[in-house]
Design a binder for these strands. Structure first.
Length: 561
DNA sequence: GCCCAGACTTGATACGACATCT
DNA sequence: AGATGTCGTATCAAGTCTGGGC
């Protein structure tokens, strides 16, 4: 039945797609929900917990005190020692103070939050030490909340909401060297929130004594509620969970677009190579940029304002981000990339490129300063317009999806063989996944306990080896069949441990989750599981299976990306 | 063509529950 | 039972891309 649904859906989507944009803009015909859940109000500190200024205890007004607690809670964090963080915090804090408080509290270094800090450390300690029963109560509370606010009714179907809880107030911590770090993220009031639902639905009730900013009935968008966050003034939304039909359809569409690129990519590659020798500089730049996006899976790289961390993507690369090596380590025409990308994650790579690309890059950087744009004649908008002309729906990010999924499929084919055990197959899968994560530069901080846990694993392996030796000796002495079996079993256990060791070592600073969730066509994985008799649960956990339900239902082992 | 707002996807990480070991 | 490690999930920041106004 489910399978039929997806086939039906697929057909509908194709029809819609061929009909053109019109039916594409309507996202639902009915939508009902309870509105967002508001975090609890601030609870003032007990009287014995005091903030001190210049050695003197000061009782703060509730608003001022609340903001003080945000800072106090973060005292252990390295970033409270950063000047930008401190200045932003202190500035915003003072703005919220009463006149008297502002008059008194003039220097952050004279502020002593240590009692407040200690209070919260103890509180979190208490939470950790709760009894099973107390924890159970909290759990039930949470699930009631989930039940009440966590779902909506979309076109008659009960769908899970992704983020039904409003973000609580706190101090903003951007990634990397963010100029706004430490600023106050204000509490969201109902009066800030726009509700989106269908006209004839039960309109969610605002908290008592409050009203919504607005209630609208716009079925061309998918969000249920929105507000402007005060740090950048950008909108934020409450949207559906990835397991929802709406998101699933969109996801499926994304991979279909990537598969259409597969059909087209040869001619696109030919075209951008031709562009490398164009008389027009902007076309050459475009050709090289698309080449980078294709070959290195770089992001498009929109322009950014200076109100955020200085990070770049392809189109926003600056001269200082590349070094050209005519020859490097026995390779010719090597480009060395070194820049901070999304989330201030460093991209470092040395790549041999075609001679013509190398020549062009030399040309692009001629007479420029390090901080000048490498591609000064193009923008992401223009680049995407060109791509769209090559193939409807094609944008820069489709290359990432396409190259990621293609890589997974190729690697799986290469690394899986019939005789493998399930464990070995899973190692192969993880390695294929890893190849993609490396391509997309998905990194993580090495787990804090990595060295230690690695050592522990090695000790276990050593122990297992000794057991095997022991068992073999015994075997020699008493030639018994069951002993033989025991050695064999130990051998299998050893192998399992060794596979685990390899997998973990190779995964030290690589994050597999992002590519699995966002770049790899799940049908590739589903087909692989079916073909090689690997249970799907070994590859996808429950959440992932929910998100990829569409793929699990519609895919057989012969699927080709 | 450019600018900006808005909508939606992609991203690392913090945290807590559960599993496993001592 | 308590310590420790692993995994899943929530969180919320930070990208991409589109469309409308000029």
């Amino acid at each position: 039945m489910l399978q039929l649904c997806w086939v039906f859906l697929a057909l509908c989507c194709i029809i819609v797609w061929e009909e053109g944009k019109s039916s594409d803009t309507q996202k639902w015909s009915s939508l009902e929900h309870k509105g967002p859940y508001f975090p609890p109000e601030y609870e003032p500190l007990p009287d014995n917990i005091c903030f001190n200024y210049d050695g003197q205890p000061v009782k703060l007004s509730p608003v001022t005190e609340e903001i003080a607690t945000f800072y106090a809670k973060m005292l252990d964090h390295e970033y409270t020692s950063k000047e930008v963080f401190q200045n932003n915090f202190f500035c915003d804090w003072r703005e919220e103070m009463t006149k008297e408080e502002r008059k008194l509290i003039k220097t952050l270094s004279k502020c002593d939050f240590s009692q407040i800090h200690k209070y919260f450390v103890e509180k979190s300690e208490e939470r950790k030490n709760m009894t099973k029963e107390e924890k159970q109560v909290l759990k039930e509370e949470a699930s009631r909340l989930m039940e009440e606010y966590g779902y909506c009714l979309l076109d008659g179907h009960r769908e899970k909401i992704g983020n039904f809880k409003l973000e609580p107030p706190g101090l903003f911590r951007g990634r990397g060297e963010h100029p706004k770090m430490g600023k106050l993220k204000k509490r969201i009031q109902p009066e800030d929130v726009t509700i989106n639902c269908s006209q004839d639905s039960k309109i969610p009730a605002p908290p008592a004594g409050h009203r919504w900013k607005r209630v609208q009935h716009d079925n061309t968008v998918t969000w249920l509620a929105s507000w402007l966050e005060n740090i950048h003034g950008r909108p934020k939304y409450i949207m559906l969970n990835p397991s929802s039909k709406l998101k699933g359809e969109k996801d499926w569409q994304k991979y279909e677009t990537a598969r259409r690129l597969k059909m087209k990519v040869d001619s696109i590659r030919k075209q951008y190579r031709r562009d490398w020798t164009s008389r027009e500089m902007k076309i050459r730049q475009r050709g090289v940029a698309i080449y980078f996006i294709d070959k290195l899976a770089l992001r498009a790289g929109n322009e950014k304002d200076d109100e955020s961390a200085d990070t770049v993507g392809c189109c926003s690369l600056r001269v200082e981000h590349i070094t050209l090596h005519r020859r490097l380590d026995a390779q010719e025409h090597v480009v060395e990339f070194d820049f901070l990308g999304k989330d201030s994650i460093r991209y470092y790579n040395k790549v041999p490129v075609e001679k013509q690309v190398f020549k062009n890059l030399k040309l692009f950087i001629k007479h420029k300063d390090p901080e000048d744009d490498l591609f000064d004649r193009i923008t992401t908008v223009k680049l995407n317009k060109t791509l769209n002309e090559s193939m409807p729906g094609l944008t820069a990010k489709v290359f990432r999806t396409f190259n990621a999924s293609t890589t997974l499929q190729d690697q799986l084919n290469k690394l899986t063989t019939e005789g493998m055990t399930v464990e070995e197959k899973i190692l192969s899968y993880n390695r294929a996944n890893r190849a993609v994560a490396i391509l997309c530069n998905h990194q993580r901080a090495a787990p804090k306990t990595f060295e230690r846990s690695m050592q522990l694993l090695q000790e276990k392996i050593q122990k297992k080896k000794e057991q095997i030796e022991e068992a073999k000796k015994e075997l020699k002495e008493a030639k018994k069949a069951h002993k033989d079996k025991a050695v064999q079993r130990l051998g299998e256990q050893l192998k399992k441990l060794q596979l685990q060791e390899t997998d973990r070592e190779e995964n030290k600073v690589i994050a597999l989750g992002t590519s699995k969730l966002n770049y790899l066509d799940p049908r590739i994985s589903v087909a692989w599981c079916k073909k090689h008799q690997v249970p799907i649960e070994k590859i996808y956990n429950k959440t992932q299976r929910d998100k990829f339900a569409w793929a699990i239902d519609m895919t057989d082992e012969n699927f080709q990306f």
